[in-house]
Nucleic acid binder design. Structure first.
Lengths: 219, 219
DNA sequence: TGCGTCCGGTCAGGTTGTCGGCAGGTCGGC
DNA sequence: GCCGACCTGCCGACAACCTGACCGGACGCA
């Protein structure tokens, strides 16, 4: 896995470089926002980006936004300064991103990076023109894109992960509520409905059809 | 998932039938080795077989061996009698198989069955161009596919499991209504009719013909 | 601190598809 | 022809599903 690190403090940059290399990853290091944009742009191969919020030339969030609008969809782990409020990020960071407060535990940071990578690896595209972007919880088609809530996204992902196959209701529950929460049957219906509505709103070529008594299937 | 259950004790058969159905699976039930061979043969759509060791007409291990040499590769979960030594099976059962001692915990048995499923999913093909796909709950031919309801699927699976041979009406009932529900003779006719209609709608090369006074046969 | 918004989950009521069975027609064997 | 077995069209009951609305909690904002 290739990890892009954007951090101005040379000591932290070296620390991360060594730790990530030791954990079996490759590292691309940038020391400010401009370099990050050059190295981690859309056609870069980075799988995850570690982004410091407090950069000398700009704010890490702005850099990330620039990366996003350049087409980079890799998930981002933010390094926030001590005392930085988490919620200051929430309005900005898309659902798939994460944040770690300095001073951080290196092992924990690496664990989070690897967790990100597992999620973000497949910007899964259902064969016919529907793109599921886990980094942003966004669904894209030729005619537009729409934002899904986390639960909606998991429901859709569960069903589109097996195109043409029937996904049982219980499978959907297991995928969308991985903590084993007990939800009523009707809750599934509600989310299916919401997802369907959003798919229609972007003229999705993929539709969720119900197989009565069994589950759902996409085509 | 389609689970084949071979068990002579009607109470246990019903228990398993109900529990598996409740867990979202389909069940094909056989009450002895001969029937198991007929229903769970190489061309059957079963994904997993639950096999009682102590059957009236033969040993479950022998039945399994017969299934294997007939080309059936689905994994098997053995039900062993109380006190049966597990190592008695070890020399025989192939790597993918499992065993559960009676009296068993239903939840545990189902968990093991589902674990099996994740390994081998396969699609059964009746010799000439008719595909029974349990994952998609559909039958496919060259000219199209059609969605079957759960009961229709079980009925068709029971009959196509032995191409060219006559399947008795009572066998169809046992396979399609594994919970032991009592259905009128006419209900079978209704479902046969529905299945036939759907087969015709996809130009199926396989047809269900009736053998008066005995049962049905596909060719 | 109070207000507005979003999200997740549930509820009640309407709608639809499946299932099982009935009634009557048809077929085949004797 | 007669009888039983089977086919066919159809219908009612019921469960599964869809839909719109609602509510509490979390969170942002002023």
């Amino acid at each position: 896995m290739l990890v892009g690190v954007c951090e101005d403090d040379a000591a932290i940059r070296r620390l991360l470089g060594r730790a990530l290399t030791y954990a079996g990853h490759e590292v691309l290091a940038a020391h400010d926002g401009r370099e990050a944009l050059r190295l981690f742009g859309a056609d870069s191969a980075v799988d995850v980006v570690v982004m410091d919020i407090g950069l000398p030339d700009s704010d890490g969030r702005d850099v990330t936004q620039a990366l996003r609008s350049a087409g980079q969809t890799a998930p981002v782990v933010f390094l926030t300064a001590l005392g930085e409020r988490h919620d200051r990020l929430s309005g900005f960071s898309s659902g798939g991103d994460d944040y770690v407060a300095k001073p951080f535990d290196v092992a924990e940071l690496i664990a989070r990076i690897e967790a990100m990578e597992r999620r973000g690896r497949h910007v899964s595209t259902v064969s016919t023109g529907l793109v599921l972007d886990p980094a942003g919880h966004v669904v894209r088609t030729d005619s537009g894109e729409v934002l899904l809530t986390p639960t909606e996204f998991r429901v859709l992902a569960a069903i589109t992960s097996r195109p043409g196959e029937v996904v049982r209701r219980r499978t959907v529950v297991a995928a969308a509520w991985p903590d084993g929460a007990l939800v009523s049957e009707n809750t599934i219906d509600s989310f299916i409905r919401r997802v369907r509505t959003k798919l229609v709103s972007v003229d999705s070529p993929v539709t969720i059809e119900t197989v009565r008594g069994v589950g759902f299937r996409c085509r």
